[in-house]
Write a protein that binds this DNA or RNA. Structure first.
Lengths: 140, 140
DNA sequence: CTGCATCCGGGACGATACTG
DNA sequence: CAGTATCGTCCCGGATGCAG
């Protein structure tokens, strides 16, 4: 419990994304821990186009392993963002689709993608400029 | 940016949030690789409240180590999202503030936070339900 | 105060093999 | 097709110490 929050830095109410200066986290960490991993967002993006089967997902998402797809899709299901349906056919057939909650995420992802595309060039430029100005200064 | 921001899922053939079915990534990975780490977003959130000094940031962001704050802020600077200003005082004084580009991120973060708060309860419930239905089935 | 260097552990992730 | 199990690697991130 972080009850001792010594001296809150004065924050203009208009700028604080969460509206509470004493709690800068404001739940962002929650979302990030949930979909901030390597694959979740890509799965959501793919499912935004409609239901997909396991193999379809794997083929659509370049580079993902079976293991990670399983884990990712399982976690999304657990969080109620994805609905998993098993058809008792032979061989087994499973499809995944976004739930209501998961579909809501699509808009955010869309916004993220838009922002990314809009600033990709500027950021790349900034990067090159930085690297030019800081030679041998490796950040990671 | 004339794109339908609602009812995306109903689209039969062309479907993904980026408007190109052959490229499901659409740059989302870019954003995530950049701010999807453990601390970047929190730094952005804090800086959304105005310029901060190094120590202020560290105090504001609960749990971050000096090392990670340095790395995070450095990467943000490199990407042109944060501006770093050094004042030649003694001892050294540095402040960080969002650039135009970085400030734009604030809105996205806000949306993320809103979504998180709005669905936190539902997700937690879904989780418990899942765990109840799948005892011993550890996802992680 | 503001940082960088170093060591180190744990978890995320990939590759592979096997099952139903 | 749709997973599960196991193993190994990599790197993120924490702790600590030192420097300008």
């Amino acid at each position: 419990m972080s009850s001792t929050h010594t001296g809150v830095t004065t924050t203009p109410a208009a700028l604080d994304p969460c509206g509470r200066a004493d709690h800068p986290d404001c739940g962002i960490r929650d979302v990030l821990d949930r979909i901030g991993d390597k694959w979740s967002v890509l799965v959501v993006v793919e499912l935004a186009g409609g239901p997909r089967r396991f193999r379809e997902l794997q083929r659509a998402i370049d580079g993902i392993s079976q293991r990670m797809l399983t884990l990712t899709v399982r976690r999304l299901e657990r969080d109620g963002l994805v609905l998993r349906t098993v058809y008792p056919t032979v061989p087994a057939q499973v499809d995944y689709r976004l739930t209501e909650t998961g579909a809501g995420l699509t808009h955010l992802v869309k916004a993220l993608a838009d922002w990314s595309l809009a600033h990709r060039a500027v950021i790349a430029e900034a990067r090159q400029a930085y690297d030019r100005a800081h030679p041998g200064h490796d950040i990671h």
